[in-house]
Design a binder for these strands. Structure first.
Lengths: 199, 199
DNA sequence: GCGCCGATTGACTGGTCAATCAATGGAGGT
DNA sequence: ACCTCCATTGATTGACCAGTCAATCGGCGC
């Protein structure tokens, strides 16, 4: 008989933290909330993590490194810059579809919290922008995109637009049922790429 | 002789708060920091404001209502949807140029902090998105914009792109000297509008 | 059985601040 | 001179919570 899973407490705590952070926000979350949600004693959180910050840290690093890989992958795999950006957008939208709570935490507490927690991760975040900028840059070199838009500007606009849409769903500014994620992604990619291509 | 200005302490406190919030972030700011920066006793902050939150509240309301007016104005004054969106972008970029510290506070602590403080103001924030969406909607009706992009999506993408660029400057992700604000605005508006127009 | 050691527990402490409030100052009015 | 009113002061209080730590548990080798 397969032994019961070793009940990885560390993972248990991380997953509980996602739920609590998503529900109450990082600042309003007490360490005891995480422990309660995980069904674990208060002190155990400090056995696995050195601080409350480090819990969020870990969550961010885990996911952001996946994004960085996905962008590289899109750059290598897809043929046209439009398809590359499409693949990046797909990855991000799918991440949200698959685990909205985690994405909410990443976006709200790290990516868009550059003044508090996100400051620590400015470097990693910038790396994503730069990878996207590289896609645009190559697209300009090949003539697929026009050359008068600075790649970093295009990249930040592209990513900013995606994040704003996700935020809209997260906070109910845009009704979630209204439009399918895939449709939203197609519209976004189409619009941005049409804007980036030569007239 | 003109009497010395009445040294409006309330204003003094608000302006000091902007500086301190911009420097340290809202959460890391103690009320005593605001009082010190304003050169005023601790208790006086509570004479004019009922809480630390209300100070930020006031700063946000003051500025956001100006934005709402500016959008209405752009809609009424400009002729084409492209010019309307251009005017909106100009207002936002100029706000940043004129008072970067205040804009930093608004964006970082309210607009992009929808989980903590911004939650209170979701309604006002959404109103701005909707006004921009209306511009897009009219543009579609007149045939200037193509009809297959939901106006609210276009609006959020547009605003999200702007805010992301401002964030880039605020946190040094984009070197500020690199490009002139006006040029950045032109590129952004051109790109987005090209993407929104019929091919 | 016994002893070792990492996992687990949760009561406690120390420090931090938001908010209160009683006291003071000083500008008009009479 | 005296009084009233409100701006202004800053010491104090009370709540809150991150992080510590001494105690217990339980699996495993011998």
């Amino acid at each position: 008989m397969a032994q019961a899973p070793p009940a990885d407490k560390r993972r248990l705590i991380l997953d509980a933290a996602v739920r609590v952070f998503a529900r109450q926000g990082f600042h309003a979350t007490r360490v005891s909330d995480i422990a309660d949600e995980a069904g674990v004693a208060y002190g155990l959180v400090y056995h696995y993590f050195s601080s409350k910050d480090e819990v969020l840290n870990e969550l961010f690093i885990e996911r952001w490194s996946l994004l960085l890989v996905a962008i590289e992958e899109a750059d290598k795999t897809a043929a046209t810059p439009r398809e590359k950006l499409g693949a990046v957008a797909t990855f991000i939208f799918d991440s949200y579809r698959h685990d909205p709570e985690l994405m909410k935490v990443i976006i709200v507490e790290v990516t868009r919290a550059a003044n508090s927690f996100g400051r620590t991760h400015l470097e990693e975040i910038r790396r994503a922008y730069e990878s996207i900028a590289k896609i645009v840059d190559d697209g300009q070199a090949s003539g697929d995109f026009r050359g008068d838009v600075a790649p970093m500007f295009a990249s930040m606009s592209f990513y900013g637009a995606i994040e704003q849409l996700l935020s809209g769903w997260i906070f109910g500014t845009i009704p979630a049922s209204d439009t399918d994620f895939d449709q939203a992604r197609d519209l976004l990619v189409t619009t941005i790429c049409d804007g980036l291509e030569p007239r």
